[in-house]
Write a protein that binds this DNA or RNA. Sequence first.
DNA 1: CTGTTAGCGCATTCAG
DNA 2: CTGAATGCGCTAACAG
Lengths: 343, 343
Amino acid sequence: MGVTIHDVAKRAGVSPATVSRVLNDRPGIRAETRERVLKAARELGYIPDFSARSLATKRTHTLGFLVHARHSLSSHSFYGQVLAAAEKEARQHGYHLLFSTVHDEAPLMLEEQRVEGLILAGCDIPRALILHLKHSGVPFVLVDNHLPGVNSIVIDNEGGAYEAVSHLIRLGHREIGFLCEWMEDLSFAERFAGYKRALQDHGLPYRPELVAEGEPRTPGSGYIAAQRLLQKARPSAVFVANDLTAVEAMRAFREAGLDIPKDIAVVGFDDGDLAPVAYPPLTTVRVFRDALGIQAVRRLLYIIEHPSTPPLQIRVFTKLIIRESCGTPLHAQLPPMPADAGA
Amino acid sequence: MGVTIHDVAKRAGVSPATVSRVLNDRPGIRAETRERVLKAARELGYIPDFSARSLATKRTHTLGFLVHARHSLSSHSFYGQVLAAAEKEARQHGYHLLFSTVHDEAPLMLEEQRVEGLILAGCDIPRALILHLKHSGVPFVLVDNHLPGVNSIVIDNEGGAYEAVSHLIRLGHREIGFLCEWMEDLSFAERFAGYKRALQDHGLPYRPELVAEGEPRTPGSGYIAAQRLLQKARPSAVFVANDLTAVEAMRAFREAGLDIPKDIAVVGFDDGDLAPVAYPPLTTVRVFRDALGIQAVRRLLYIIEHPSTPPLQIRVFTKLIIRESCGTPLHAQLPPMPADAGA
DNA sequence: CTGTTAGCGCATTCAG
DNA sequence: CTGAATGCGCTAACAG
């Protein structure tokens, strides 16, 4: 506590500037001098003061990580894992992460010059904020969200849904429902698109009565969606836009006297911790949370170093995880599945 | 970007020192001057530079939030919600949160003087680290963990377990099992203690064959624990030390042909997002995550302001949430329950 | 290759 | 009540 660059300089018999050079690996230092400085620093237990360094360099080596307060880090949202992975990656690059939920206006951490860039996780980051950031030229990247001309790391929602529904079709299902909390969510809309494309590619008609939504941001939304679906139709399988909704829907199905997967097969999306312990264990589409966090940090760091790099969208592919909720082939033997390209 | 206190001073026709005083609410400024400065600052969109301020004041207005990398922010751990609540509370006090998983040695963020204090969440923070921090005199507080002479915010594990088991007894159960992942975990040990005390207070014998552990930190640990229990005994109810383990155990019970709650009642602990969507919905002990985060921040800020305050342990009580997994009275009508004291 | 000088932006003496 | 001077700890530009 309190040993400065001056103390080190005095002990090593050099000037503070030399110490600074050595500690920052600047070129042009005699090897012998370098050793002497390093030794002195080590002996004194010198650790550079963060604020002083930031003030002098205008760099804080800190990144902001923002999520919307609503789903925040609730267990069913996987941003906690994205955060943890991001922090690990950031640390390996000498960066720290300042966490915050997003609220009203522009993040204070930015204006105070606390952070060099921002990671914004989730679909529900206010559009206005994103545009403001884009306009102001701050380095930032979206995770699980996207906008034209903005750097983002996205989940292959459409492809994952396509694969899930294709699997159902391959199992022999012809009447496949789609359930989600609400269509306005970007991710859910994309998963819905994947659902429709899979139907079409396999020559199956799209039938609106097989689609149902729950209530936006309401607990038990999946339960409601399932009930609504059952009033309109009786599909032999459903693809549900996320795990929690799927589990809630399964409950409604059970209460309606349907057995899962015998009477109705269900596939979810996310492969959160919920999926393996659901009853029955949920077939679902795995989202690689770590990859999202890691890529977000790498991309952001790159943008910071190369401010004029053109915006990029990085897509993280998904992987279908087959458990028990989707059952086995309905009628005949399956053709062999092509090898998986996940991970 | 770049409007400094000097700019404000010039525009307001005063000196930088005066601006600083106004902006920091220092006494001894004429009202008229104050207004003029405030106006100038507003017009210029002045925002104080964080690094410069920190360097001058030796205060970063930043708190570190550490969790162990292992369970990190996985959905089944509720620290994500503690973090979110802590961040909100911190923000209201003008503080920011630096997030990190805990690893090898002393947190760099501390030595670099990035943070004024630390929140350490979870039972698995290395003992050595805690002792090191205590020795070095840094302000810090433990969450969901404790040590003599160290500030901490704890869950009433023992009391929560006591209430859960008492409920089971009240329902008519006499053979009540206890299941957990592994006994070495502090929280689980405390919950186990509550289990035993409840048995004792109700005149029931403690029988080791009714207790089983799974495998430490192994997925499906609850499943294993339940199987082990079933080999030794056939209780009519079990109290399980956390929700995830409970849900896994329920699966094992079902596979053994037991109906829940008819053949075996189960109660969990945590009331995470898993509990309400489990099958059947899980009766469990609610942990108030927000309270943990809020109290941690408040306590830490207090310690920072009053460094010599004696260490405190703050206990957050729990609340039994009754759902379906524990069924209804076994034999007779229940006596009326006393009003709840939760929240 | 290394020392000296001069800030980074702000808060805080000490004068007046 | 307010201004001028000083320094927080470090890096960078310029000499030497």
